[in-house]
Computed example of a mutant assay.
Amino acid sequence: MRPLTKIGLGLMALLLLIAAGLVAAYWWPLLPLQTVMQHYPLATRFIMLGLAAIVALIGVIFLLVALLRRTTHRQLILPQKRGQVSVSQQAVENAVTRAVKQQHDVRAVDVQVALNQRDGARAKITADPRSPTDLVALAKAIEATAKQQLTNVLGVPAKHVKVSLKPAT
């Protein structure tokens, strides 16, 4: 998840938690509000309290997602001997797509790469093989090609590569 998205989700979660607290404080019978609440039935208060609890739960879930989800980047900055190299996500995806198409008998290849500064790259490859024979071996070969392309050619450490093949028939 990108840092700006995490900040936005965190702010939204905090606003939801504040809203839930205000709604719960308004509908729970406090002394100044008790005279106003006498005109409403008891069921209405519990319904509003339940809705406030649901909003608070959604706020807590948003806050946990914003805090605990990994941060991904569009560019990965790799330190080199003479400085640093910036590798974009789209360049990595295009290079892996070209390598898989050149070395294997597939029609369409879709590569999605998530770049993480600490872990390197995680790739998810979906391909349409031209022939339906020995898909397991083809998947392993595509995975090896993608790892080799990421690690040796691009210099991006490959943590995990997942290959999905769509059968031709």
Rank of each mutant, 00 (worst) to 15 (best):
A121L: 10
D110Y: 01
P29Y: 00
G50Q: 14
M12A: 14
S86C: 08
Q34V: 06
P79N: 05
V111F: 06
V113Q: 06
I61D: 01
A25E: 02
Q90I: 11
P41Y: 08
R82Q: 11
I58F: 15
A56C: 07
V65P: 08
A43T: 14
V87A: 00
G83I: 04
R82V: 07
R122P: 06
G50S: 15
Q117R: 12
A95E: 07
V87Q: 01
I125N: 02
E93H: 02
I77W: 06
A43V: 13
I61M: 12
F62L: 13
A56T: 08
L33G: 14
T97H: 00
H39I: 10
G10W: 07
I125M: 05
A95F: 01
A25Y: 09
A53F: 02
L57N: 09
L31M: 08
P32I: 10
Q80V: 15
Q34E: 09
H39S: 13
L14T: 07
V60I: 15
I47Q: 11
T126K: 14
A56S: 11
L42F: 07
M37R: 11
L14M: 01
L68I: 05
L16K: 02
M12C: 13
G120N: 07
G83M: 00
A121S: 14
I47V: 15
A43N: 10
L42D: 10
L16A: 13
R122M: 04
V60K: 02
V113W: 03
I77L: 15
L57Y: 10
G59T: 13
